[in-house]
Design a protein around this nucleic acid. Structure first.
Lengths: 199, 199
DNA sequence: AGGGCGATGTTAGAGTCGTCAACATGTCCG
DNA sequence: CGGACATGTTGACGACTCTAACATCGCCCT
């Protein structure tokens, strides 16, 4: 058999690093970021509690690696949405929807990604994507102009981030707010949009 | 001596609950929310590690109580800012500045307050405050109208929350964004404001 | 006044977790 | 084929949360 299998051939696992990251994603989703335990992860994957330290210096290092993968998926999702958009105005809304959906579907991963860890490299690339989309939408007259793309993009980013968090952790549910994502995004960005997309 | 002192008169402390909450605020600010330890808190206050359980069922219960106090201070700060405002338009900006400042000055407390805990009562009252201010500003022509106050207030809340988090944890520092709060808030809310406040 | 009782402390300990050191085992290269 | 290096395991340490059993204090009640 090939040694990428889940059943360790014997003493050595063969692909422990990958198995740990995959298992961590699941465990994180089940338990939440706060209750995530490295010991439990090791138990699940079927190795000793010391084994992960051969691949990650730290619990935080593992979480950082997971966040990094999350960033890639996030970025890819945004890029796909940008490509699939009908036009510059539609693109902005679609990016927002993807942003919200990501935070909603994998809240714990989202939390890990944006937690305060010094030296996190990613982010700027994704921000650039938004800046570009904003610039295009401004040129096309679909988005409010008068501010440089960077400023407007930063505002939209903050708005989406706030929405993501408040929606994601039910902060809005208590306020009696509950509507489909597209509508929520479009309504929230109404002040920026020149043409209202059909919702 | 009165028995509200910091030096326990003898066996009993006298005002342990208060001392724990006060100590927790400091410890939280020093260590951050993730590294906050109930044992260390007990050590600092000068009692055994089991003592806090006479006043709080749980570590989370203590943190919740602290968050509750935080909410009150937050709410009071917003109310004071609302009162001190020159007019409806200025009021909105001031509320935003207070929001940001609070998140920036006590980031760990802010994190505790908005973490996902079911059954957190507060929040709606504070949200109402914002809704009212938005409604007034709309009536005065200082704020974009066309949407019900609740919708616009929700959007502004999300925007502020996103800004608070991104600014607070340096997510913007990496992107080369660094400006005074008033300017940041005014710039971010430019799309909602009918008249630009002097910054 | 005295006695008891509830509130509020303490000590001791169980169970979990993160992490490390020392040892075992498998792989692969010279 | 033999040894070095990567990757596992065992065992242990210290810190943490939380509980149970015991100690002490203040206060109320007759």
């Amino acid at each position: 058999m090939s040694d990428g299998d889940r059943t360790r051939t014997s003493y050595h696992h063969g692909a422990l690093r990958r198995a740990l990251l995959d298992g961590a994603r699941d465990l994180l989703a089940e338990r939440g970021a706060a209750a995530f335990s490295l010991s439990e992860l090791a138990r699940r994957v079927g190795v000793s509690t010391a084994a992960p330290y051969r691949h990650f210096t730290d619990k935080d290092a593992l979480l950082d690696a997971l966040a990094e993968e999350g960033y890639m998926a996030f970025h890819a999702g945004l890029e796909a949405a940008a490509r699939a958009a009908a036009g510059p105005g539609d693109r902005i809304v679609r990016l927002g929807v993807v942003y919200l959906r990501f935070a909603e579907e994998t809240p714990a991963l989202f939390e890990i990604m944006f937690r305060d860890r010094p030296g996190r490299p990613s982010g700027p690339a994704t921000f650039e994507l938004l800046v570009t989309a904003v610039g295009q939408a401004q040129d096309a007259g679909a988005l409010r102009s008068g501010q440089p793309p960077v400023v407007l993009a930063r505002t939209i980013w903050a708005l989406l981030h706030g929405l993501a968090i408040l929606v994601g952790q039910g902060g809005f549910g208590k306020l009696g707010i509950d509507e489909p994502r597209e509508r929520l995004v479009a309504e929230s960005m109404a002040a920026f949009l020149r043409v209202r997309p059909e919702v």
